[in-house]
């Protein structure tokens, strides 16, 4: 689906997410090149005994081929321990493959001389908002990243402003992060990543610890960044509502990518998803129950609106 469509929209720079500058968009001119390319990527965790001798190895990621196009919104599903977070940590070289290769924006993550460039290309946001904020004031926290990249002072403040505006937290720039809600803290964390102008953002269950309102805030922010600034997004989540609008969905189980496709394709396989102990959107479930009773509904219904329309067709 959509990435080509999005790129063509992309040259219209008029309405970039609330103030993002023209000189930065996630596509960075590599319009047709895949930003993330993994080939036979495997990763083993070593277990050590009490004396520090290697005891056993666990293969967390197993021969994964991964292709993400620039500007894509990719969702990764899988239950805990399926290897999705391990995979995600390869994208900004926190972990290096035991076997296989991973190229991020054309750079091999195992090439140590490129480490900082890779980290700058791919930013990460983690689950717990309280573990990611280090500043005592919101704008200082957001400025921390670019400051460490050696960005000149005026430029830092410019980036802080545009990043905070992009996530809708500019009014809170002088607040203490302690007093913010979980959703607001996550948006500050995202702004901190955006200030480093990455082409790609990897979010590892950014909404798992938030209430429903916080979840909506964070997901809207991420979607806007993807749509308006064309940042490539990899979103790891358990919430199906967050997956429905992705361009592509990957399902992981036991370190392998076991399903991939558009949300419609993926959610056509209700039984298979259930076998991986994953959730299915409620609308898909109702449609599936009706199909089992012999009602002639199409596969892959994702929203209640779609379901109501299909039912209406049946009735007439």
């Amino acid at each position: 689906m959509g990435w080509k469509r999005k790129l063509s929209d992309g040259y219209d720079k008029v309405g970039l997410a609330a103030g993002l500058q023209d000189d930065w968009t996630g596509t960075g001119g590599y319009a047709e090149v895949g930003i993330i390319k993994g080939r036979k990527l495997s990763y083993d965790y070593q277990k050590f005994d009490e004396e520090g001798n290697p005891e056993s190895t666990v293969r967390a990621v197993d021969a994964v081929d991964l292709d993400v196009e620039t500007g894509d919104f990719v969702a990764i599903l899988g239950h805990n321990g399926s290897g999705k977070s391990t995979l995600a940590k390869h994208i900004n070289a926190i972990l290096l493959p035991t076997e296989g290769t991973l190229y991020v924006d054309g750079k091999d993550t195992q090439d140590e001389s490129k480490l900082w460039e890779i980290r700058q290309t791919a930013g990460m946001v983690f689950q717990n908002p309280d573990n990611q904020i280090i500043g005592t004031i919101v704008d200082e926290d957001v400025g921390f990243g670019p400051e460490n990249l050696g960005v000149p002072c005026d430029e830092i403040w410019k980036r802080v402003e545009e990043s905070l505006k992009a996530v809708g937290m500019w009014e809170y720039r002088a607040h203490s992060p302690n007093k913010l809600s979980g959703g607001q803290k996550q948006r500050v964390a995202i702004a901190g990543v955006v200030a480093m102008r990455p082409k790609c953002i990897v979010l590892d269950e950014p909404t798992a610890m938030l209430d429903p309102n916080g979840r909506k805030e964070v997901i809207c922010t991420v979607r806007e960044l993807n749509r308006r600034a064309h940042v490539t997004v990899l979103l790891i989540t358990h919430y199906m509502e967050e997956v429905i609008e992705a361009d592509k969905v990957l399902v992981m189980d036991q370190g392998k990518v076991v399903m991939q496709g558009t949300p419609k394709e993926i959610f056509s396989h209700v039984e298979e998803l259930k076998s991986y102990r994953l959730d299915v959107p409620q609308a898909t479930l109702v449609a599936y129950e009706l199909q089992k009773k012999g009602v002639g509904l199409p596969d892959g219904i994702l929203s209640m609106k779609e379901l109501a329309e299909e039912l209406e067709k049946l009735r007439s």
Partner: peptide, 29 residues
């Protein structure tokens, strides 16, 4: 409300004789 509640109210609004009290997937189906 649970998501199915919205579906049931939507359908009822279009004249379907459905139970708008349904709150689970099974009840709705």
């Amino acid at each position: 409300a649970p998501q199915v509640t919205y579906l049931m109210h939507d359908l009822a609004g279009q004249g379907w004789p459905v139970d708008t009290d349904a709150t689970t997937v099974e009840e709705a189906a």
